[in-house]
Write a protein that binds this DNA or RNA. Structure first.
Lengths: 124, 124
DNA sequence: AAAGTATATCTAGAAGTTGTAGGTATACTT
DNA sequence: AAGTATACCTACAACTTCTAGATATACTTT
């Protein structure tokens, strides 16, 4: 079996609402990715700090496709099927918009969460 | 009546999971706040960019209280009832932990969302 | 040869958070 | 008298994500 704790911190849940933006952003960089590749890419970019679960990823991909932001083409590579996703024209526009929105929100959040009182300098 | 569009951007939904952290952080700064005050404070800190809805706020406060992170005392001020919330000892610890976690997550998110290719310098 | 790991996709249902849309009530301003 | 600001509340809908399964191929280890 072999469970293994790894980081102990790796399992932080995603903030709900961020997954679709992550997907759109990665596809903005790469033109073409398949689901499993996305999970690996996120893990790599964040040094294991963020893990996308498959139970969230695949429904999210299907929804983005249904919304017309992604298109797919399936290929068989090394005997295994892969489903490649790419941004549609609308998807490209939406990618920019949603990334901007999320960045703006995070900016606000950081303002709120920033320490209120700077560490006082030692008195002398 | 008079609806009014204001910013057109004011209505951005919160990232689910961030509200309780915002509450804990504000109470870390101020010792004692009531619900309505929290909504106004967030609005002020973010220049209207983030709006906390009461339908989300009050249930969140009640939950944090039920979890033992907050305590309340009710007072009547200017003829109106106010319910002040403060951090418990456990609440203070949790505030630090959750803020740290959220900041770490945002750091990761920013890594993912950062532009992949720096704007190329003009060729000459 | 068997078992486990990595690759690759999928779904059903539970859990959880937030928004919508109401409700109540007092004080003040128009 | 009506509207606005202050102040609290709840029920329900909407949505996203996680858990926990399932399936299948290829490769490595035992």
């Amino acid at each position: 079996m072999h469970f293994w704790a790894m980081n102990d911190k790796a399992n932080q849940p995603l903030l709900k609402g961020s997954l679709s933006v992550i997907i759109l952003k990665l596809l903005e960089n790469r033109e073409r990715m398949y689901g499993y590749e996305i999970t690996q890419q996120v893990k790599a970019l964040t040094a294991g700090g963020v893990a996308i679960t498959e139970g969230a990823l695949y429904p999210a991909l299907h929804k983005l496709e249904a919304e017309g932001l992604l298109t797919t083409e399936t290929e068989v590579v090394d005997g295994r099927a892969r489903k490649y996703y790419s941004l549609t024209k609308t998807g490209k526009t939406e990618a920019v918009n949603r990334v901007d929105e999320l960045m703006a929100f995070m900016q606000n959040l950081q303002t709120i969460l920033a320490p209120a009182f700077p560490a006082p300098k030692p008195a002398f």
